[in-house]
Nucleic acid binder design. Structure first.
Lengths: 194, 194
DNA sequence: ATATAAACATGATGTAGGTCATAAATTAAG
DNA sequence: CTTAATTTATGACCTACATCATGTTTATAT
């Protein structure tokens, strides 16, 4: 399912400026959101305001289906990370897409499986592993997605919000990882060497 | 997809005695496993031997698809919790089921969405919440699945393995929850009152 | 009924990582 | 260029939970 196809079929594009909330916990799901441009973060927030990054979604991806499919209220916020153009597709239309668009259903199955895989991995980390191991795991996960020689453009705060640690801990731990040579740095950012 | 239908189509049933390992981390996925009878637990184990329960699967359910679908090695062990009869369905047959069995594909999508929902919830808990909150969350999640007046037949060790806590912590915390009245107990086990 | 193994319980002590405070270094904005 | 805002950095202290040790109660098997 590519986004242009949706537009051709007459679905409307909605603009969300950076930091605009797309949906929040407690709301009943009505749409699945297809991202044409920009980026979205999905976060849960604890009582005392600590954020956890459940996922980052980019152009070409969609989000919000699980809650809609199982028909339960959202658990997370989704917020535009940058200015974004998004196509909300309502429940009926979404189910029509699944039924009638060749390959869409199997694409959805793959997407859900992938996310499940990531979440299983992170659950194990958060349940059992300590700071150093958790950090190495996401760092390597993120490094696998960029080119050799590129730097990870992720802040320490974001790493903290993905691992359930606090910034200070991430800062100290990354310093140790660099000293140990477990991680290579370039001007304060982690770089992929191989 | 009900299990009898698979048997009618000629798929073989394999017996696994209690505690038999069905697959383990590092293996390449070759089958999806449909449970005819018995029960299976999926666990990840840290370096120092601590277990985390990724999921429990019962008669009528299937497991092992995500790794097969994304074509990556298993992260977890799956182990028979009780004597079990299981039908391994190989990759090609499984994809045929998706393609050709009416309703199977949408059933799979629902199943994956449900698990994703559970894992998102637990990730938030493990990342941000302390022992008491974590415990109340799974306890209520588990209570929702049993009848009013029934007792939760789950050990404190199992609660520990689902929340990333240690038995002693779970024991102490449950005692506090009972004293606070946040949880009702009957002969040492948590009971659902309403 | 008795033995044996799980499960539950509780105290004493240790520690990883959180919290708080304060500041230097980058990056973005005007 | 200068200012403001983020991000990174570091020390001092604290706390929730882990760890270890040992015992009691409750199931399970013979």
């Amino acid at each position: 399912m590519d986004i242009q196809e949706l537009i051709d079929r007459g679905f409307a594009v909605k603009k969300y400026p950076k930091d605009k909330v797309i949906y929040e916990p407690g709301m009943l799901p009505r749409y699945v959101y297809f991202i044409r441009t920009g980026e979205v973060r999905m976060i849960t927030v604890s009582n005392d305001g600590k954020e956890f990054i459940q996922g980052i979604f980019k152009a070409g991806q969609y989000f919000g289906e699980p809650a809609l499919i199982v028909n339960r209220r959202y658990l997370a916020f989704t917020i535009a990370n940058k200015d974004a153009e998004i196509i909300p597709v309502n429940k009926q239309d979404f189910f029509n897409l699944i039924e009638n668009t060749p390959g869409f259903s199997s694409n959805l199955i793959k997407t859900l499986s992938n996310r499940l895989f990531y979440k299983s991995m992170m659950l194990e980390e958060l349940a059992n592993e300590k700071a150093e191991h958790r950090l190495l795991t996401i760092i390597n996960y993120l490094l696998a997605d960029i080119e050799i020689g590129e730097r990870l453009k992720v802040t320490r705060q974001e790493l903290a919000d993905m691992t359930g640690l606090r910034v200070e801990t991430v800062i100290r731990e990354i310093k140790l990882l660099r000293e140990k040579g477990s991680v290579n740095m370039d001007k304060g950012k982690i770089i992929r060497l191989s």
